[in-house]
Write a protein that binds this DNA or RNA. Sequence first.
DNA 1: TTTCAACATGAAACGTTGTTGCATTTGCGC
DNA 2: GCGCAAATGCAACAACGTTTCATGTTGAAA
Lengths: 156, 156
Amino acid sequence: MEIKVVFLCGRKRGRNEHHRMKNATDILKEGGLKKSAQRIAVINILQAKQKPLSEDAIKGEMGEIYDRITFYRTMQALCGAGIVHKIIVDNTVVEYALNAEGCPHEHVHFFCTVCHAVTCMRDVAVHRYRLPADYEQTGCEVLIKGVCPSCLKATR
Amino acid sequence: MEIKVVFLCGRKRGRNEHHRMKNATDILKEGGLKKSAQRIAVINILQAKQKPLSEDAIKGEMGEIYDRITFYRTMQALCGAGIVHKIIVDNTVVEYALNAEGCPHEHVHFFCTVCHAVTCMRDVAVHRYRLPADYEQTGCEVLIKGVCPSCLKATR
DNA sequence: TTTCAACATGAAACGTTGTTGCATTTGCGC
DNA sequence: GCGCAAATGCAACAACGTTTCATGTTGAAA
């Protein structure tokens, strides 16, 4: 039986007010996972980029230590522990994002159809859909497609 | 340049009030696609089952005439013409559903984590999310996960 | 510090999913 | 019916994802 640390939602943080990031070792410990070079590398990369990344992008950052099989297992472990979440854009397009510290509420994801970047819209909460009473809801994925600000600006 | 037939939304139909289904040949013609055995088979199967189906399920219904390569191209054609829509449950789980006649508004999809069935919640519209003004939205996918009525009943 | 069980790793091999090229067949407008 | 464009199906390929197994690490208890 392992202890999960739950972050309490404090006051809202301002848009440019960064909090000190926890290091990979602590994140793993809190998730009840053993430390390993692969896992630390993945967490550090996702933390540094501050946005969802594809396997390919992570691979590029990892360099030599990247191993395809280990990568899948690493991501399974990190997802299972709630350290990262998987964003399914299409059945052939998957991205991974670090779960935000602080308030880990369900948020909307945005996919830019021009540059193919995926963004976690942390300020846009998932709507609470009303299904017929005999359905039990456990989760909800929302993916909005469109054109991101930088691509929109580029076309003008 | 092909002509797309747009169905106008008339009065709401009652829950058990079925309208006469168009046949596959007409659907293809309206979609600007050529008639073919594969396409007709897929449309007929989706129409008969009245619910989203996986490739495997469709394959099972098609029998001998199923061909994997043709299937992908068929689904690409049908999706492109707006005759069916693809529901991405997970990167390894894809389902296809016939676009409903009548009101083809964006609707929510439901995935039962017990029986893995996918349902089009035709009466549950996709919420209009408000993103920052510099984002342009073109579409939105909503997938709710949970337990469907029949699985819920089975556990009691 | 040493020991050790549990877990992470990476190589090989395999299965599935999706695509591309090409020769052949089919649909459909003329 | 003719002929062109599109659909089909085969082969081959590429990418994605999993399983098995031998080996290397981690972390906790002796």
